[in-house]
Design a protein around this nucleic acid. Structure first.
Length: 303
RNA sequence: GGUGCCAUAGCUCAGUUGGUAGAGCAAUGGACUGAAAAUCCAUGUGUCCCCGGUUCGAUUCCAGGUGGCACCA
């Protein structure tokens, strides 16, 4: 039988976690996470990590596996997840991957190109130049270093321009020459289940979830991490807004309102990314039986 | 009960000396290759409270009604 990776994806707050437990138990398998924030053990309430009970019921991987001080990226996600799957598929036919981080999912399913990790020195150098001379200077630099990518990139997006320049400097090659645009072959089958619900309903759930997080101690959790606010891992919805409040820039109510709005925006961006993936079969989270039936039929299909 | 003010987008409001309207926020669509819960781009959705009157034409002016707020009883 072909080994199968079941991917359960969808926007934040849609209800992936609860369903994932049922699916994992149905196939008597474990869960690997594709969530760029739940990997960090210092964050619990604000990232809506699965409940203790759920973690006990089904073994999870890449939940709280790293510290906010660690470097983690979609490349690590791809490498580590593939290694885990290789190991798990020795005695399992199915594995379940759950999470909403678009690029992480993409990295595992399709792979990403080999690009050098940017050294802190280069990152600082390029970011400083951006601060001092502005976006236009970096655009001009990119035009010199990689005229091909210069034509493709969204020039208004400073992060993209900065990163392209960094890669060129780091590798000594044009960034575009490292981008193969090829999908990597996997030696396992992939079935993608997308969860979605009515937009108003989704936003309602998101808003309510934020209120619950606050009740459960999100403010205290964020306060304890305030000193690490400059870490990239702390550039996270549910924390960065509270940091603004701690700095005295906005009221507590305003920061909570912003957490809700930013979560909604994130959900919208996730849907926008997922929509173009034709391999995703979409369901409402309540359609548990339909989902299991669909998975069963797909697993059998090519076997 | 009386007087005054207000009623325009999902919300807060601006505006039209009479030619069917626009800001902020919210919202919507999109992009995305090692920071991605990041970052960037685009988009105005409307019985201008209701009913009459004046007018070629009323969201705008006038009368009445309804609702809200304030003050006086």
């Amino acid at each position: 039988m072909a080994k199968t990776l079941i991917v359960l994806l969808g926007p934040t707050g849609v209800g992936k976690t609860d369903l994932s437990i049922r699916i994992a138990r149905h196939y008597n398998t474990e869960i690997t996470s594709s969530d760029s924030r739940q990997v960090y053990r210092e964050m619990r309430i604000g990232t809506a990590v699965p409940e203790e009970e759920q973690l006990k019921t089904v073994k999870h991987h890449f939940i709280h596996s790293h510290s906010i001080h660690d470097y983690f990226s979609s490349w690590e996600c791809e490498q580590k997840t593939l290694a885990l799957l290789k190991d798990q598929f020795k005695d399992k036919d199915q594995m379940l991957m759950v999470g909403g981080s678009m690029m992480y999912i993409d990295a595992v399913c399709n792979g990403i190109d080999l690009i050098p990790t940017i050294s802190p020195e280069i990152r600082k150098e390029v970011c400083d130049r951006y601060e001092e001379k502005g976006l236009e200077a970096l655009q001009a630099e990119l035009k010199e270093l990689d005229p091909i990518f210069y034509e493709q990139v969204d020039l208004q997006n400073a992060k993209r321009v900065i990163h392209a320049v960094e890669v060129c400097l780091m590798s000594g090659k044009p960034y575009s020459s490292l981008r193969t645009n090829k999908t990597k072959e996997r030696d396992f089958k992939i079935i993608k289940i997308g969860l979605n619900r009515d937009r108003a309903e989704l936003y309602d759930r998101i808003n309510q979830r934020v209120d619950i997080m606050v009740k459960e101690g999100q403010i205290e959790e964020a306060k304890a991490l305030f000193e690490f606010r400059d870490l990239n891992s702390m550039n996270t919805v549910g924390y960065k807004e509270l940091f603004e409040h701690f700095k005295g820039h906005i009221s507590l109510d305003k920061s909570i309102e912003l957490i809700k709005r930013n979560s909604r925006h994130y959900a919208k961006r996730q849907l926008s990314w997922f929509r173009r993936d034709e391999k995703i079969q979409w369901f409402h989270p309540d359609q548990e039986d339909e989902i299991i039936a669909y998975l069963d039929s797909q697993i059998k299909k090519e076997a």
